[in-house]
């Protein structure tokens, strides 16, 4: 946090520094913040304890808000009428797009949490899936595996995406698209196709042949999700996605 952010903000003034007060001129900053806010708890190294506690709460609340909003994005993308991607005639339901985006934008932990919230809502029979479907009857249906597969899928997308963000811009887009392909297509299908085969009692080969029909749409969505996530990361900085800002 002590490094200047994307806006180039530099904590030169003690009263502006707030939580950023961890620069070389430590003594001066400490004196400045201590004068404005009397410490409510035993003091740590650089900040008054009050500030740090509020900051920790804010980080936690942000995590919860991000998880909830991405869960809502996944649901909302299923509720809006299907969208047409790049003028294709076949409408694409955008729900798996939302799942891949959750991983690629929020990372493994928070992305998985938002998918878990969606699955909790599905079990609670709320109509959160595309076409107003929901309920435990979806999980036992042939496509239930693809739904449960979102959990490992989004986790893998998030893991790879966090590494991809360290790359230079051009390679970063490729890395994010790769993350979405690996998680959203490979991992999801690895759970979804066997589940489908077990529920219907079909051979795995026959089921896989049927699943190929969905492949073009999912590949397209993975590419879109990767590109969109890269665009989002250039506009919003999510601190937890960058290892340097931890601790």
């Amino acid at each position: 946090m002590a490094e200047p952010g994307p806006t180039g903000f530099r904590p030169s003034e003690p009263h502006l520094a707030g939580g950023l007060a961890r620069r070389s001129d430590k003594g001066r900053l400490e004196a400045g913040t201590a004068a404005t806010t009397p410490p409510a708890r035993p003091r740590g190294d650089a900040q008054p304890g009050q500030h740090r506690r509020v900051n920790a709460e804010l980080v936690r609340a942000r995590a919860v808000a991000e998880v909830a909003l991405f869960a809502a994005v996944i649901v909302a993308l299923g509720m809006v009428p299907s969208v047409y991607a790049f003028g294709l005639a076949v409408p694409v339901t955008a729900q798996t797009l939302g799942v891949m985006l959750a991983g690629a934008v929020l990372g493994a932990k928070r992305g998985t949490a938002s998918v878990a919230v969606v699955i909790v809502l599905v079990v609670a029979s709320l109509p959160v899936l595309s076409g107003g479907r929901g309920g435990i009857g979806v999980l036992t249906s042939p496509t239930g595996g693809f739904l449960l597969g979102w959990l490992p899928a989004v986790f893998v997308v998030g893991l790879v995406a966090r590494r991809a963000l360290r790359l230079p811009p051009r390679a970063r887009v490729c890395g994010l698209v790769g993350a979405c392909l690996l998680g959203g297509v490979v991992v999801d299908y690895a759970l979804g196709v066997p589940w489908w085969s077990v529920v219907t009692g079909q051979d795995l080969a026959l089921t896989a042949a049927q699943a190929v029909a969905f492949l073009p749409g999912d590949l397209l969505k993975a590419v879109l999700a990767g590109v969109a996530a890269a665009a989002v990361h250039t506009q919003v900085r999510l601190d937890h996605m960058y290892p340097a800002s931890h601790g």
Partner: peptide, 21 residues
């Protein structure tokens, strides 16, 4: 109207989530 609506949607969402937090 295309899928690309998701980019401004997400940026708005993330902004909104800060306020919400």
């Amino acid at each position: 109207p295309s899928v690309l609506v998701t980019i401004p949607l997400l940026v708005r969402c993330l902004d909104r989530s800060r306020t919400l937090a």
